[in-house]
Amino acid sequence: SLSVDNKKFWATVESSEHSFEVPIYAETLDEALELAEWQYVPAGFEVTRVRPCVAP
């Protein structure tokens, strides 16, 4: 099958004044980091952490 098993990760994104967490959907932690950097670094943010979303 061609289905992709995307998992939810939380990326911590920082600017000079703010820090916030955004959801990233990817297959692996490395891919989540790449996606977060691709989305947020060009906008002037720094991705400081990516972690798996742990269900309660």
Rank of each mutant, 00 (worst) to 15 (best):
residue 21 E to S: 06
residue 15 S to E: 03
residue 2 L to V: 12
residue 3 S to T: 12
residue 43 A to K: 14
residue 34 E to V: 12
residue 44 G to P: 00
residue 27 E to Y: 10
residue 36 A to P: 02
residue 6 N to Q: 11
residue 5 D to I: 12
residue 12 T to G: 03
residue 14 E to R: 09
residue 37 E to D: 04
residue 12 T to W: 06
residue 23 P to K: 07
residue 27 E to S: 14
residue 16 S to A: 11
residue 39 Q to N: 06
residue 25 Y to M: 05
residue 19 S to I: 12
residue 52 P to Y: 12
residue 32 A to M: 01
residue 38 W to I: 13
residue 48 T to F: 02
residue 49 R to N: 15
residue 5 D to Y: 12
residue 37 E to L: 13
residue 55 A to L: 10
residue 1 S to M: 10
residue 24 I to E: 00
residue 36 A to N: 00
residue 9 F to Y: 09
residue 18 H to M: 12
residue 22 V to S: 01
residue 23 P to Y: 11
residue 4 V to Q: 09
residue 8 K to H: 09
residue 4 V to R: 10
residue 10 W to M: 10
residue 17 E to T: 11
residue 56 P to M: 10
residue 54 V to L: 08
residue 17 E to K: 10
residue 35 L to V: 08
residue 41 V to A: 09
residue 9 F to A: 00
residue 14 E to S: 10
residue 9 F to L: 01
residue 54 V to R: 07
residue 38 W to E: 13
residue 36 A to T: 04
residue 45 F to N: 02
residue 16 S to L: 09
residue 30 D to T: 12
residue 56 P to K: 04
residue 43 A to C: 14
residue 42 P to W: 09
residue 41 V to N: 14
residue 5 D to C: 15
residue 39 Q to F: 14
residue 56 P to H: 11
residue 48 T to V: 14
residue 6 N to D: 08
residue 29 L to A: 08
residue 19 S to T: 11
residue 43 A to E: 09
residue 19 S to V: 12
residue 49 R to M: 15
residue 17 E to L: 07
residue 31 E to V: 05
residue 30 D to P: 05
residue 16 S to Q: 11
residue 35 L to W: 06
residue 20 F to Q: 03
residue 44 G to K: 01
residue 1 S to F: 10
residue 47 V to S: 01
residue 11 A to G: 03
residue 5 D to V: 15
residue 12 T to A: 04
residue 17 E to V: 10
residue 38 W to C: 10
residue 25 Y to N: 04
residue 27 E to H: 14
residue 48 T to E: 03
residue 15 S to D: 12
residue 13 V to I: 15
residue 33 L to G: 03
residue 53 C to Q: 07
residue 31 E to P: 00
residue 55 A to C: 13
residue 6 N to S: 13
residue 8 K to F: 13
residue 16 S to T: 07
residue 20 F to N: 02
residue 16 S to C: 08
residue 56 P to V: 12
residue 9 F to W: 13
residue 55 A to G: 12
residue 8 K to V: 13
residue 28 T to M: 03
residue 26 A to W: 01
residue 51 R to S: 06
residue 24 I to D: 00
residue 55 A to T: 11
residue 45 F to L: 04
residue 56 P to A: 10
residue 33 L to D: 01
residue 25 Y to C: 06
residue 35 L to I: 13
residue 18 H to S: 10
residue 21 E to I: 09
residue 42 P to Y: 07
residue 31 E to H: 11
residue 27 E to F: 10
residue 53 C to D: 15
residue 27 E to W: 07
residue 47 V to N: 02
residue 52 P to M: 09
residue 49 R to K: 15
residue 38 W to Y: 12
residue 26 A to C: 06
residue 39 Q to E: 09
residue 45 F to H: 03
residue 16 S to I: 08
residue 1 S to C: 15
residue 15 S to A: 05
residue 44 G to Y: 02
residue 13 V to T: 01
residue 19 S to H: 08
residue 37 E to P: 01
residue 23 P to W: 09
residue 35 L to C: 06
residue 19 S to P: 01
residue 47 V to E: 03
residue 2 L to R: 01
residue 38 W to P: 03
residue 37 E to R: 13
residue 10 W to K: 04
residue 6 N to C: 15
residue 56 P to Y: 10
residue 4 V to H: 07
residue 41 V to E: 06
residue 50 V to S: 00
residue 54 V to G: 07
residue 35 L to P: 01
residue 3 S to R: 09
residue 51 R to N: 05
residue 6 N to F: 14
residue 41 V to G: 15
residue 7 K to D: 01
residue 52 P to D: 07
residue 56 P to C: 07
residue 55 A to H: 13
residue 45 F to K: 03
residue 22 V to K: 02
residue 38 W to Q: 15
residue 42 P to M: 07
residue 47 V to M: 00
residue 44 G to V: 01
residue 7 K to Y: 08
residue 43 A to D: 09
residue 32 A to G: 01
residue 38 W to T: 13
residue 26 A to G: 03
residue 4 V to C: 15
residue 33 L to F: 12
residue 6 N to H: 08
residue 27 E to I: 10
residue 12 T to D: 02
residue 31 E to K: 14
residue 37 E to T: 08
residue 13 V to Y: 05
residue 33 L to H: 07
residue 15 S to V: 04
residue 8 K to I: 14
residue 48 T to L: 07
residue 34 E to A: 15
residue 28 T to W: 03
residue 45 F to P: 01
residue 1 S to E: 08
residue 29 L to R: 05
residue 17 E to P: 00
residue 19 S to Q: 07
residue 10 W to R: 01
residue 23 P to I: 15
residue 25 Y to L: 04
residue 41 V to M: 07
residue 21 E to N: 06
residue 22 V to E: 01
residue 34 E to T: 13
residue 15 S to N: 14
residue 8 K to A: 06
residue 49 R to S: 15
residue 3 S to C: 15
residue 26 A to R: 02
residue 46 E to L: 09
residue 34 E to R: 15
residue 2 L to N: 12
residue 23 P to N: 04
residue 32 A to I: 02
residue 52 P to Q: 09
residue 12 T to S: 05
residue 43 A to F: 14
residue 11 A to T: 02
residue 12 T to K: 06
residue 2 L to K: 05
residue 51 R to W: 13
residue 16 S to W: 09
residue 48 T to M: 06
residue 53 C to A: 09
